[in-house]
Computed example of a mutant assay.
Amino acid sequence: MVKIAVAGGSGNVAQEIIDVLVATGRHEILILSRKDIPTESTPGITWIKANYEDTESLTQILQGVHTVLSFVSEQESQSSPFQKNLIDAAIKAGVKRFAPSEWATSGTQQLSWYAYKKYIRGYLEEVNKKGKVLEYTLFQPGLFVNYFTRPYKSTKHIHQMEIMIDFENRRAIIIDGSEDAKITLTAVQDLANVVSKAIDYEGEWPVVGGIHGTTISIGDFIKLGEKVRGGPFTVEKVTKEEFEKGDWETSWVPRIDHPSIPVDQVDIFSRVGVAGILLGISAGAFKVSDAWNRLLPDYEFVQAQGFLEEAWEGKP
């Protein structure tokens, strides 16, 4: 049994992982949040309202903590001051393991809103440059396959945004000529289970912690969608240059209403996000390694085809 601190623990992905950790009954869980503390709490969980601008108070909070899982989102600041302070506090408090706020892609190219992730990768490298000070892993599952069951829930907490391959309406937007670009699709349930197993893992964490469900080309994934949904998809193709210039036009624009995006900015970000994600896919940012698969050979990962066939069976 160890003490785990979850920073930004009120987020969707964090809640999926917390549920699994609580179910094990093996760990003490401390949730740090900038929001007000809930009036009702789950047994085994302690909530603390945290000030990420105050390294000293964070250091006190992290006393006795073995592992920190960060879900702090800092799109507004490329230098990620809150996470940097959290790392500094973890080191001062003697924390053994740290997982920065990754939970997505292997690369950040074309994904401007992930600049803070790139900065923190560099900062963690720097703190360990002269010798290991803090063990860490970058948990990277690629895209959650759960997004593609929208509007039907396939997970308790994940908010299902509209995405460029729309199974419900049998349509897709892709970059012209990108059919061979690869994406990794992983169930959020697998991510949560792997994180739980990683906390108990006795070996050293890999720096690049890819979690691999299914890796498939865009073209083959659309074909899979057509098989699962029982009919052809309408595929709109936009050139890479049009996405880069921002002057692309399609018959629909996926609404990327992630909880971290202010409501009044969703429409603007949706166009930026669609272009960035598709350019990122083309650049290989959504293809991740199988590092944790190899370290956990007895764990059976969900495959995209079976998952989606089950989710869409009998649906109109």
Rank of each mutant, 00 (worst) to 15 (best):
Thr250Ala: 14
Thr250Phe: 04
Thr250Lys: 02
Ser251Ala: 11
Trp252Met: 08
Val253Arg: 03
Pro254Thr: 01
Pro254Gln: 06
Pro254Arg: 08
Pro254Ser: 09
Asp257Trp: 03
Asp257Tyr: 04
Ser260Asn: 09
Ser260Gln: 11
Ser260Trp: 11
Ile261Gln: 05
Ile261Cys: 09
Pro262Met: 06
Val263Thr: 12
Asp264Phe: 10
Gln265Cys: 12
Gln265Phe: 07
Gln265Pro: 05
Val266Trp: 02
Val266Lys: 10
Asp267Lys: 08
Asp267Ala: 11
Phe269Pro: 00
Phe269Thr: 01
Ser270Pro: 03
Ser270Arg: 04
Arg271Thr: 04
Arg271Ser: 04
Gly273Asn: 04
Gly273Thr: 01
Val274Ile: 11
Val274Thr: 14
Ala275Ile: 05
Ala275Trp: 01
Ala275Val: 03
Ala275Phe: 02
Gly276Thr: 07
Gly276Asn: 12
Ile277Gln: 04
Ile277Leu: 08
Leu278Asn: 11
Leu278Trp: 03
Leu278Gly: 07
Leu278Ala: 10
Leu278Val: 10
Leu279Arg: 13
Leu279Lys: 14
Gly280Gln: 09
Gly280Tyr: 10
Ile281His: 12
Ser282Asp: 15
Ala283Gly: 14
Gly284Pro: 04
Ala285Ile: 03
Phe286Pro: 05
Lys287Tyr: 11
Lys287Asp: 15
Lys287Phe: 07
Val288Tyr: 09
Asp290Asn: 13
Ala291Thr: 13
Ala291Gln: 07
Ala291Met: 10
Ala291Tyr: 07
Trp292Tyr: 03
Asn293Met: 09
Arg294Gly: 07
